[in-house]
Design a protein around this nucleic acid. Structure first.
Ligand SMILES: NC(=O)c1ccc[n+]([C@@H]2O[C@H](COP(=O)([O-])OP(=O)(O)OC[C@H]3O[C@@H](n4cnc5c(N)ncnc54)[C@H](O)[C@@H]3O)[C@@H](O)[C@H]2O)c1
Ligand SMILES: NC(=O)c1ccc[n+]([C@@H]2O[C@H](COP(=O)([O-])OP(=O)(O)OC[C@H]3O[C@@H](n4cnc5c(N)ncnc54)[C@H](O)[C@@H]3O)[C@@H](O)[C@H]2O)c1
Lengths: 263, 263
DNA sequence: GCGACTTTGTGCAAACGTTCACAAGGGCGT
DNA sequence: ACGCCCTTGTGAACGTTTGCACAAAGTCGC
């Protein structure tokens, strides 16, 4: 279990929360540069990025003193500095595993390449898909993962395969040398130390939205009332056979729990 | 600017961080239920969900005391309680605006419906797409938004339209009565108070991965050395014409900054 | 050349989140 | 029936993140 992420940040000193916002600032900066804005104040940039100006200044101060007091930040200069900090002054080849609905969408996505990310190759296990081209990228079989990763020096992989194969795909990617993984499958991936996993989970986002939506409509309906006497499951008794508590209809789902791999 | 999210949580008392993890627990619980596991300890469930067991217990304690000391949690009972808390005991119709690559992928996604989320309708502005069916869902024109939202009582909308139209699409959704928005466009949306926006931003995730990947390979190459003398932009001087600081080649991009809307 | 004005960069405190560690509580074996 | 043992639920310590408020610093007008 890699818990090193937290301490890694402190040894160099840039908080994770700041890192997560830098791409936001970068996007706002590019938008400003497009409008030929040469210089921007923390207030303006913060508004454009949707954050507090104090937070923005503190975030940027972690990269260095790149502003001019009384004036603001030079847009092009700041774009360069933020890009450098994020490692965007180089190109990043990305391997996409799973050429289904989502994998295709990614491969066809133009915005993918706009920040130096390039699709090195697509991988799929379906013989009918292998050999075809998607978004101008040839699809290879899973056995080519090692070769592609080595050949192009791929460090970043996106997993858009079904949840059931996500962990094994992940293992193959890591074995081949990939150290950063963007996971779209609804699974908790287990990876050795030194490998970075981020997940994009649409289902979770929707559920969070549902929670807030529920709360909103509940407080609309009963401004200050108890929740309407939930008549759901009774607390189950442990001794004896378990009572019938199947009020929630079991729904189909494709999620699996990840099997641990040797760290 | 809606900053009410934070304080809303405290009035009822469930931290936002906890809410964001409940779907994770729910998924792990369903996986356990599928294996006919009747009861689970916080340790096991935490491992399955990829979190610390103390954190899991504290999270669950916010919903109530649904465990049995010395034994653990009844799986079915906990599924019910978590589902109820998240508002998943009811169905949520969702409207998808933008039937392009991503919108199609969502509409075709089976896992979409597995937690009670149903595609109420798809919307697109392209006359060639309007009237066709995607994933079994008829595509309507933007003018039908109001009707669909009212008719089906839609509270949740997903924006998979281009970044340039995302804000106007958002405005129409909000005007029609949608209060929860899942935004896939690389834009900071501005919404009135009482509307909840979550974003899924692939580009940002990749950039965060790139940062860590860069750091890793840098520390591999120069274990304890200064960064290799960046010869990038000089700090620009403010007086006079700005110097040529165009070291970073300007890249194409489709991001825009959101225009403010009323309130 | 100088003073006023503007905006950055940052110390500090409060809010929030995580983790530890253990008392309280309940089942189970005898 | 009783005590042992296991696991929950939670108080307290710790770390992180946010936001305020202001001194430091540089520009611009005169
Ligand atoms: N489509 C969506 O909108 C969406 C939303 C959220 C999550 N997801 C998740 O993303 C993943 C992909 O979704 P999708 O809709 O594209 O599914 P899909 O079934 O359309 O595509 C999956 C592809 O992966 C390939 N594949 C299967 N096993 C493989 C393996 N071992 N190695 C390489 N390729 C393999 C299949 O041949 C198929 O082409 C799933 O895990 C899904 O749960 C999808
Ligand atoms: N495809 C991806 O993998 C991906 C990844 C990250 C982000 N995104 C973002 O998601 C959004 C959609 O991406 P995409 O690849 O599906 O783009 P796309 O061009 O394939 O699809 C966009 C669709 O939106 C429709 N549209 C345009 N204006 C509209 C309007 N005002 N109302 C309704 N529909 C409208 C278009 O007709 C088109 O069908 C974009 O903002 C993109 O930046 C996509």
């Amino acid at each position: 279990m890699s818990r090193r992420t937290r301490s890694d940040n402190s040894i160099q000193g840039i908080p994770e929360a700041t890192i997560a916002r830098l791409p936001l600032y970068l996007r706002a900066l590019y938008a400003l540069a497009d409008r030929d804005t040469a210089c921007v104040s923390s207030e303006e940039l913060a508004t454009a990025a949707g954050v507090n100006s104090a937070k923005l200044r503190k975030d940027l101060s972690h990269l260095g003193s790149y502003g001019t007091r009384g004036v603001g930040y030079d847009v092009d200069y700041l774009i360069y500095q933020v890009s450098r900090e994020l490692g965007l002054t180089q190109d990043w080849p990305v391997i996409i595993v799973g050429a289904g609905n989502l994998g295709r969408a990614l491969a066809n996505y133009g915005g993918f390449a706009t920040r130096g990310f390039r699709v090195a190759a697509m991988i799929d296990s379906d013989p009918l898909i292998i050999g075809t081209s998607i978004g101008g990228h040839r699809v290879f079989g899973p056995d080519e993962i090692e070769r592609v990763v080595t050949r192009f020096g791929v460090m970043i992989g996106a997993i858009t395969a079904p949840a059931t194969s996500a962990q094994s795909v992940c293992n193959r990617l890591v074995a081949a040398g990939v150290t950063s993984i963007l996971n779209f499958a609804p699974v908790v991936l287990t990876v050795p130390d030194g490998v970075d996993v981020r997940k994009v989970d649409l289902s979770i986002e929707l559920q969070i939205l549902a929670f807030h939506a529920q709360r909103r409509s509940a407080s609309k309906a009963h401004p200050t009332a108890e929740p309407p006497a939930v008549n759901g499951c009774e607390p189950p008794s442990v001794n004896g056979k378990r009572p019938v508590t199947q009020q929630v209809t079991r729904q189909a789902h494709d999620e699996v729990t990840a099997e641990a791999i040797g760290s």
